[in-house]
Design a protein around this nucleic acid. Structure first.
Lengths: 215, 215
DNA sequence: AATATTTTGCGTATTTATTACACGAAGTTA
DNA sequence: TAACTTCGTGTAATAAATACGCAAAATATT
């Protein structure tokens, strides 16, 4: 019965990850400068081959840990890319995932297969190897579409955050500025936030109330 | 350089299709009764192995033509399923697509690998082989979510259709009844429809205006 | 110590979108 | 010709989204 699977040659399958990070100022994507061919010394999304004994998500977590040091992060499947010539080595499919992380929480560790690892402003990416520019674009579009009707992005902030911080993140993803009062109303109406009762002090003006995500 | 691709064993990759059909009364999914193992004599979604020289969409079109006789239909990628034990033959991934078709436009042709081909009411599916019940559920959810903000479903109707026909389709997908006047307003406001000026006559009451999709 | 500066917290009026709802008209069937 | 079915349409009520300004709490400046 196994034989049927051998009738045709199989494609290779990779997992590629679009990791979004937000440092309080701007949204970035984590890119890796490849050491080896193909696309040696070029920037690409972190990715790697799927192993037979692991699920997509396990593979994505393993790959990200090995190549970037980032562990245990929230991942969602984006799309599967299967163009015939996306990889010069042969037919390689990519099941793409995207993730949102708070860069302050992780120490980047450059893996063995990479020259360098760097955050790039999400709208100002360098030329990328494979079809990774296309993948990154699809991920950007997905993120912008999703935030319209879900206040996502908690993973990008600290556990406790001020309303202004959350608003700045939304403005960054949407690319437009929002009204502070209406934003506050909308967030509270979503029922996904609650006040912690604490305040963030020590900044250069009135201390702001801290909120947290309701799980 | 090719060698790197051989370092690991590769999974098999299949394309599975959730084909929705609408006959004017109810929404259905097209299922295939398998002739061969695994899951011989059980119902499954039509699917097949991806070949190295074809894109996902080409594969889906080929598979559907071979197994069901349906050609040249509108397809959209749904999700990629990669559970470790979804296929008893080994590690098999499935890139799932879904399609909307008007059954009246096609003559079903049972392919060589199938005992039978049949439309099932989309909410009353028989037990399915592999993880196809799960795939069908994901497709149903996607369809219901999508119709909320896009008047999709033109592929399910004839080129010209009455507002009542379109409304019946929406009600069927949403599982609730809608107000006729509000529905009319909403559809016209979407800008995706226009009146043809013609009417559908010969039915048992007042003739209805015919509309068409604006491409 | 007083003053200027920054950022916070909050409420109401306006506009826009969504929902609820009924009746006469145009055909067909009995 | 009377009864039946489905079609086409408008307005009022409600809910949701938007626009908008000012006093309070802290820090920084003189």
């Amino acid at each position: 019965m196994q034989d049927e699977l051998l009738l045709y040659p199989h494609p290779s399958v990779t997992i590629d990850c679009v990791v979004f990070g937000y440092d309080g100022e701007q949204l970035s994507i984590l890119l890796l400068n490849r050491r080896d061919e193909p696309f040696a010394n070029q920037w690409t999304l972190p990715g790697g081959f799927l192993r037979l004994e692991e699920t997509f998500e396990e593979a994505a977590q393993r790959i990200l840990k090995d190549k970037t040091g980032i562990e245990n992060l929230f991942l969602e499947q984006l799309y599967t890319f299967g163009g015939l010539s996306r990889d010069p080595r042969g037919r390689v499919l990519s099941v793409a995932y995207y993730a949102l992380v708070n860069p302050a929480k992780y120490q980047l560790m450059v893996g063995q297969m990479a020259n360098e690892l760097r955050w790039f402003h999400w709208k100002l990416l360098p030329p990328l190897g494979f079809d990774h520019e296309h993948i990154a674009q699809v991920a950007q579009a997905r993120l912008a579409a999703k935030i319209q009707y879900q206040p996502i992005g908690f993973e990008l902030l600290n556990a406790q955050f001020t309303m202004s911080e959350l608003q700045a993140l939304h403005e960054c993803i949407l690319g437009e500025s929002l009204d502070r009062r209406n934003f506050h109303k909308r967030m509270m109406a979503s029922g996904l936030l609650r006040s912690t009762g604490e305040r963030r002090e020590g900044l250069k003006s009135r201390p702001a109330e801290l909120f947290e995500f309701i799980p």
